[in-house]
Nucleic acid binder design. Structure first.
Lengths: 143, 143
DNA sequence: TATTGTTATACTCTATAACTATA
DNA sequence: TATAGTTATAGAGTATAACAATA
């Protein structure tokens, strides 16, 4: 007997969750030899794009709480992908190192391939609709 | 300084993840007084819709591994929302109890409201496009 | 007083490996 | 041999509370 979950087909939350899990699993897979977790990769990319940003700013941009940013930043610094200098007594300015910039560039290339593979399953205008709908669903007025 | 993550706007995986997190947080919130986790609620709903199904079948339907189904089922049984009878030496048939059926019905009502709130942010045809795109993105040929 | 970073801790979901017992 | 369920364990993300140092 195979179970049907047809009543779940119209549940947006459930469908989002399932699809996100599939994309995240693939994301982890393509970054396996990087030995970087998804949160570390996105953090590195944000720092690369925003030199001298603070830890809190990165966290705010990625919706990661301050407390949870600490081990992420610590690992990036330990691996010398990110460096930080003290701005004032409580703020730290973050920058990617040369190695970090190279890692970020390589990550972007892999992400592009990963994204393309999934996006290829959708028609172009459907993809655009989805990309416009997602921020709107979470109340992002910017998009 | 506010950080911009404009380069993430076109990243489907990232946008899915962020939106899923927002909907999941709201899902948890509306079920707070149920003292049921999301995985427990969906499990209860599947059992309600598929009397005498096995634990493995539920797990397969929800993409939850057998090992992870164990504590979910155990909690549902402990709270007497689900009962099980042994089919043969290794299989168990699951059914919701009367209390479980009532809980499932109440959960469905709350989920409907929760869903409606998010869906209201989208135009009807955009919503349909999204609901058709999500299974397709994860390779579900059924939808 | 509010903010930045930190520590400690706990919960949920997920993953794998190895085990029992049954078919 | 393969299957259903179980146990143990680990990793990743997320959440809160409390704290120090500083603005």
């Amino acid at each position: 007997m195979t179970i049907l979950t047809k009543s779940f087909d119209h549940l947006l939350g459930y469908q989002l969750r399932r699809t996100t899990a599939v994309m995240m699993a693939d994301f982890v897979r393509i970054l396996a030899d990087f030995e970087m977790r998804p949160a570390e990769v996105t953090t590195l990319l944000v720092i690369a794009d925003n030199p001298d940003c603070s830890q809190s700013e990165v966290g705010e941009a990625l919706a990661i709480k301050r407390a949870n940013m600490v081990p992420i930043i610590a690992r990036l610094i330990k691996r010398e992908l990110v460096a930080r200098t003290r701005v004032d007594g409580r703020s730290l300015a973050l920058r990617v190192t040369a190695a970090g910039a190279a890692q970020a560039a390589e990550a972007l290339q892999r992400i592009a391939k990963h994204e393309a593979r999934f996006k290829a399953t959708l028609k172009a205008d459907d993809l655009e609709t989805v990309l416009r709908a997602l921020p709107r669903l979470r109340g992002d007025q910017a998009s």
